[in-house]
Simulated scan of single mutants.
Amino acid sequence: MSNIESLSDEEEEVLVYAEFEDTVNFDKYNSIHVLGLDTKNPIFQLDDTFFTGTYENPLGTFMFFEEDPSPNTIDPLFDKLSKKNLKYISKTRKFINIQHAYVKPKEDKQEQEHQQEEQSSESDNIKPADFKSVQDALEKFKKSWEENASKE
């Protein structure tokens, strides 16, 4: 087996802490999909509800624990176990802040073309600024401001 093949067969598991801004009850969803976790803005789909995430730098380290079904105690006489005992699993510095995303339906092709034409015509009307001095620029901007104000 070559070295390249052994590298491609290996997978790295990385834990990521994800925090939803809205309260989300995961029990009511049948399917959960995460798309583009390795991209700048991953997308989370819970049934028909969409969320977008952004990676952020946390102030500290997030630690993951799980319930310990058989906790150990060194001295059973003096070490009293609490009702819920946790066991350390892992830690991470990767944090995703997740917000609700609203999906808009696609517009008609005619309406899209019309908007593109308007945008292109507006960008065609823009001319480069040619001022000889700061005073000259102020006068031209003041004049155009007054013209626009009088039109309204």
Results as ranks from 00 to 15, higher is better:
Glu107Leu: 08
Asn41Lys: 09
Phe51Ala: 09
Glu56Lys: 11
Val16Ser: 02
Met63Arg: 11
Glu19Thr: 00
Glu5Leu: 08
Phe64Trp: 05
Ser31Asp: 09
Leu77His: 10
Lys132Leu: 06
Ile96Trp: 02
Glu152Ile: 09
Asp68Gly: 15
Asp38Ser: 03
Glu56Pro: 01
Gln99Met: 10
Asn3Val: 02
Asp27Lys: 01
Glu147Ala: 08
Tyr88Asp: 00
Lys142Cys: 07
Glu56Val: 11
Thr61Ser: 00
Asn25Glu: 13
Ala149Glu: 13
Arg93Gln: 15
Ser31Pro: 00
Asp22Thr: 02
Gly36Ile: 02
Arg93Trp: 01
Tyr17Ile: 01
Gly53Arg: 04
Asp27Leu: 11
Phe20Trp: 01
Asp47Ile: 01
Asp79Ser: 11
Gln116Lys: 14
Leu77Pro: 05
Ser90Phe: 11
Ser123His: 00
Phe78Thr: 15
Gln115Tyr: 00
Gln115Asn: 04
Lys127Phe: 05
Gln45Trp: 06
Phe131Tyr: 09
Thr49Cys: 07
Ala149Phe: 13
Asn125Gln: 05
Ile98Ala: 05
Ser150His: 02
Tyr55Ser: 02
Glu122His: 08
Leu81Gly: 08
Tyr29Thr: 14
Lys40Val: 00
Ile32Asn: 05
Asp27Thr: 15
Asp68Lys: 00
Phe95Gln: 11
Ser8His: 06
Glu13Gln: 13
Phe131Cys: 10
Pro58Ile: 05
Lys140Thr: 04
Tyr29Pro: 01
Gln116Met: 12
Lys142Asp: 12
Phe51Tyr: 08
Ser90Met: 07
Lys151Met: 05
